[in-house]
Every structure is written in structure tokens, then in C-alpha cells.
């Protein structure tokens, strides 16, 4: 309680110079306003944000295509040589598309294959867990705010912290192997076995993000009118039927948002898995973003062109997924509006 007045004092002490600064730039801005009119002021207010957008998002996006058509290891575009579609050909050429060993860039195909499997399982598990959690949080519970917070906690943790927490628990002599030992089971090499490391990558990322999606679904559940359920209860409808006929159709827009957001994020998976396994054992948990990072930045002889080409291919997948989302949400809106 004693902290409050101190905070307030600090606040006013801090506000004074800021207010002074704001007052100081007012006269020149009045001049600007006189010269340019209201629309000019709109441009002035937009300028800082749009400048940063332009320099650090839009411009890179455009020159990324140029990068993907150049070769060599030089960083700046003017020192690079034009090679046409060579980088894409290198990424996409395979003797036999079912065997990644036969590809020119087998590391890329390995990463792409890993990412596909990861996305499939992670998104499915995430959606199911988030759905169950949302349904449970939507019940009449004492202390609902607390329970909602519980599942949200890992969402705030940084990927590095998430990776390290689980590295500590999954290590050879870690907590999980101790628990297995307690129930009389053999210890498992969670992070050095190919299969288990992959499974751990999926489970850890589900653990870290599930609460976020559960909250979106919960918001959707709470928006469903209560009288629908009351009517169903009066008709004596079975709970399972209520779920399939009322809850699921009305939740569909939120469910689509959840699935597509989860897909888009899963395709870019990097941070927590990189800290957890480092892409290993071997390259069995190396995903697309890590491939781009390794090729473009981490390895001794960098290949920015190849990394750019790979990132554009990944971006294309993301654009397709986003368009799918738009189409799906439009369709579900039309279906809802038609009735």
C-alpha cells in the first residue's frame, strides 16, 4: 500500500519533463498545421510508424525476391551476382521425391518434411487440448479467473525459458525419468533419441501455446446465447447432441481462427525447439526456420540467396494458409447469415 503514493510521485515527476517536451514541439507543429492543413497533419501522425514499416517490413519483403535470385556469399545486393532461378532449382530438385537423400539440398527436404509432420501433429493436438480446456473453463466453476490463468501461464514465458525448463526436466537424470523410475519403468533418453526428441518438441510447443488458443475458444463459447442451451434442455436433448448440433457449429468461426493461427505459427516453429534440442539428434528436429537461420547466418560460409529462396517458399505456404483462413471464415459467415 505504501508503494502507491511513491509510484504516483514518481509518475508525476516523470510526466513533467514529458509534458514540457510535448509543449515545446507544439509551436512548430502549429506552423506545420497552418502550412499543410488537416490532411497534412494526418500524414505527420502516420509518418513515424509508416517509415518504420516501410524500412523494416515492406522494403525487405520486396528485396527478398531479388536476394533469392542472386548467388555468392556477399551480403549487400549490389555485390551479388544474378543467377536467375538457380537457388529455387537447387532447393526443389530431387531424383525421387519420396527419398530425401536423392535431393540436391537434402537438408532442406529434411527440414520441410520435419515441419510438415510437426505441423500435422502439433496443430491437431493443440486444437483438441485447447477445445477440452475451453469447454471445461466454460462450465460453472468457482474461481474461474484463477483456472483460466493457470492454463495461460506458459504462454507468457519466453521460448528460451520454455526450452530450458523442459531440457532440465527431460534430461537423462531429470524429473521425468525419476518419475518413470518410481513406477518401475526404464529411463528414456528423451532428447537424444530421434523419436522421443521429436515427440518432446511437439509436446513442449503444445504446452507453451495451448492456453492462448483455449482463451480464443473460450471467448467463442461465451458468445453462444444461453437460451439455445435452455431450449435444448427443455426438449430433453442429450448432451452429446447439444455439443454437435449447437456448440460446435456456433463455435466454428473461432475454431477456424484457432486452427489457422496455430498452423501459421507451427510452420515457423523455431525458438523453443532450438533451445530444447538444437535441431538434434542429428537433424531430426530441424525445422524450416532453423534451416534458413543455419544457411543464412550460422554456418561458416553463408548463403543468403539460398536462405532467401527457402524463406520465400515458406512465405508462400503461409500466404496460402492465410487465404484459406479468409475463404473459410467467409464461408462460415455466409452459412451463418443464410439461416
Amino acid at each position: 500500500m505504501a508503494a502507491q503514493p511513491i509510484l504516483k510521485k514518481a509518475g508525476t515527476a516523470l510526466a513533467a519533463p514529458v509534458a514540457w517536451l510535448a509543449a515545446l514541439i507544439d509551436p512548430p507543429l502549429r506552423g506545420l498545421q497552418k502550412a499543410t492543413g488537416l490532411n497534412g497533419m494526418a500524414a505527420f501522425f502516420l509518418a513515424p510508424n509508416m517509415a518504420i514499416f516501410g524500412i523494416f517490413v515492406l522494403f525487405p519483403l520486396v528485396i527478398n525476391f531479388a536476394y533469392s535470385m542472386t548467388g555468392g556469399s556477399a551480403l549487400f545486393l549490389e555485390q551479388r551476382t544474378y543467377v536467375g532461378t538457380e537457388q529455387y532449382e537447387r532447393l526443389l530438385t530431387c531424383g525421387n521425391y519420396l527419398d530425401k537423400q536423392s535431393c540436391t539440398e537434402d537438408l532442406f527436404w529434411n527440414a520441410a518434411g520435419n515441419t510438415a509432420v510437426f505441423v500435422l501433429f502439433q496443430v491437431a493436438l493443440m486444437t483438441v487440448f485447447a477445445m477440452i480446456t475451453a469447454l471445461i473453463l466454460n462450465r460453472e466453476l468457482r474461481g474461474r479467473g484463477f483456472w483460466r490463468a493457470v492454463f495461460f501461464f506458459p504462454v507468457l514465458l519466453s521460448p528460451v525459458v520454455v526450452g530450458l525448463i523442459w531440457r532440465w526436466i527431460l534430461q537423462r537424470q531429470g524429473l521425468l525419468n525419476y518419475l518413470l523410475h518410481q513406477v518401475g519403468m526404464e529411463p528414456v533418453l528423451w532428447l537424444t533419441d530421434r523419436f522421443w526428441a521429436f515427440a518432446a518438441a511437439i509436446m513442449v510447443s503444445v504446452w507453451a501455446h495451448m492456453g492462448f488458443y483455449a482463451l480464443i475458444l473460450l471467448a467463442g463459447l461465451q458468445a453462444i446465447p444461453k437460451d439455445l442451451y435452455e431450449a435444448a434442455e427443455m426438449d430433453g436433448t442429450r448432451p452429446a447432441r447439444v455439443f454437435w448440433r449447437i456448440t460446435l457449429p456456433l463455435l466454428m468461426p473461432n475454431l477456424i481462427v484457432v486452427v489457422v493461427l496455430a498452423l501459421i505459427r507451427a510452420v515457423q516453429i523455431f525458438d523453443e525447439v532450438y533451445v530444447l534440442t538444437g535441431g538434434g539428434p542429428g537433424t531430426s528436429t530441424m525445422f524450416l526456420t532453423q534451416y534458413i537461420y543455419e544457411i543464412g547466418f550460422a554456418q561458416l560460409i553463408r548463403n543468403p540467396g539460398l536462405a532467401a529462396a527457402a524463406s520465400i517458399l515458406m512465405g508462400a505456404v503461409l500466404v496460402v494458409l492465410t487465404l484459406l483462413q479468409l475463404a473459410a471464415s467467409r464461408r462460415s459467415q455466409n452459412a451463418g447469415g443464410g439461416k
Binding site: L75, I292, G296, P304, A308
Partner: peptide, 10 residues
């Protein structure tokens, strides 16, 4: 992750 390379050069 899509604009890493050009952003780095900028």
C-alpha cells in the same frame, strides 16, 4: 522468419 536475410542486410 520470412524476411530475415534482407532485414539483416538493411
Amino acid at each position: 522468419s520470412v524476411i530475415l536475410v534482407p532485414l539483416y542486410s538493411i
